[in-house]
């Protein structure tokens, strides 16, 4: 089943964001970002600004270059063109580790936990750079070792408590259920102390109730940690429900930016998702699912919801495989 049927979380006001962060400098400012792989331009003229406590969404059809953007931001790939300013600082010349220390943390589309380590140790890997002792201290277990490890343990537990996962601390990460693994990835990313959290399809493979819980948690994380969040997601309920601004990527270029409302009614976006033919197919069919209409669930809208976001269905099917 697709996640389209359940809409539990209220929409935040789309106009609220710019007001709250109006006088603050942007957390992330990307301009003219692009990368070529050989002759292929994977991402081009990518411009985006994210304010310090904004939840932004990056959507687009499969293969549009969304994950490539994440890889550029985290310097897994070195950009061919453009600049990335993080908190006003140019990340040019930084490597992945330095970017992480500067404040970008991410999760992965296909979960990449350290499967053989325990849940707690996975979080502690995220805390690695905040635990301060050297090798001899660790080998001989000097007092500083105990102090720092205790601190790390407490911090790890505190972070795990965001998702009520303290009880699972001793489990091997690879043995966790799928949804818990996704949540653990978010905790691990948060452990590195980011200013900007990148979530790559956080709801992929989650059931509707897990997704709605995730939506609440994304907002909770933003409120508690006062960080910006940029997420890639195919689940339109989540994107429309939690994101304050959305950028739509198609063939490596941004084709639309705006509030969830703007995006839902943007003809270019509808065309990118459905193909050009459907533009003439009547207004109702050509509208992306609108979670602000959640209160009046009628059968017709649900069916168009399926139609309008084929990727959401693919996302829904993943959990069954």
């Amino acid at each position: 089943m697709s996640n389209k049927d359940i809409k539990l979380v209220q929409l935040p006001s789309p106009n609220f964001v710019p007001e709250r962060d109006k006088d603050k400098p942007l957390m992330l400012e990307v301009s003219h970002l692009g990368i070529d792989f050989g002759g292929l331009t994977a991402v081009n003229e990518f411009n985006i600004g994210i304010s310090p406590t904004e939840i932004a969404g990056l959507i687009g059809p499969n293969g549009a270059g969304k994950t490539t953007v994440f890889n550029l931001l985290t310097k897994v790939y070195e950009p061919t063109r453009g600049t990335i300013l993080l908190d006003g600082k140019d990340t040019h010349g930084m490597n992945t580790i330095q970017v992480n220390q500067a404040g970008i943390a991410r999760t992965f589309q296909n979960i990449r936990l350290f499967d053989k380590l325990t849940v707690e140790d996975n979080v502690k890997i995220g805390l690695h750079n905040s635990i301060k002792y050297h090798m001899p201290t660790g080998v001989f277990r000097l007092p500083k070792y105990w102090k720092e490890e205790k601190k790390a343990h407490d911090k790890a537990m505190e972070l795990l408590s965001i998702f009520d996962m303290q009880d699972m601390a001793g489990y091997i990460a690879g043995s966790l259920p799928y949804g818990a693994q996704r949540r653990l990835e978010i905790v691990r990313a948060l452990a590195t102390g980011p200013k900007l959290l990148l979530l790559d399809e956080p709801a992929a493979g989650m059931n509707p109730s897990e997704t709605s819980e995730l939506m609440e948690n994304i907002e909770k994380i933003r409120d508690e940690f006062k960080i910006a969040i940029l997420l890639i997601e195919h689940d339109m309920n989540l994107v429309m429900g939690v994101c304050e601004s959305i950028a739509v990527l198609n063939f490596g270029e941004i084709i639309a930016k705006g509030t969830p409302n703007d995006i839902q009614n943007n003809p270019k976006v509808i065309e990118a998702y459905l193909g050009s033919g459907s533009i003439n197919g009547g207004e109702k069919e050509g509208t992306l699912p609108d979670s602000s209409d959640a209160s009046k669930p009628d059968a017709e809208q649900m069916s168009t919801g399926h139609l309008a976001s084929p990727d959401a269905m693919i996302g829904g099917r993943k959990e069954e495989s």
């Binding site: 990449r112 660790g138 080998v139």
Partner: peptide, 27 residues
């Protein structure tokens, strides 16, 4: 004890499992 209980040992095990992810976690 070193590989299971210290941050460096854990980093070692993390790197042996997934270099890329470890790097993205700042290791």
């Amino acid at each position: 004890l070193f590989t299971t209980r210290t941050k460096l040992g854990k980093a070692m095990r993390a790197v042996s499992e997934d270099k890329g992810a470890a790097q993205l976690m700042g290791i």
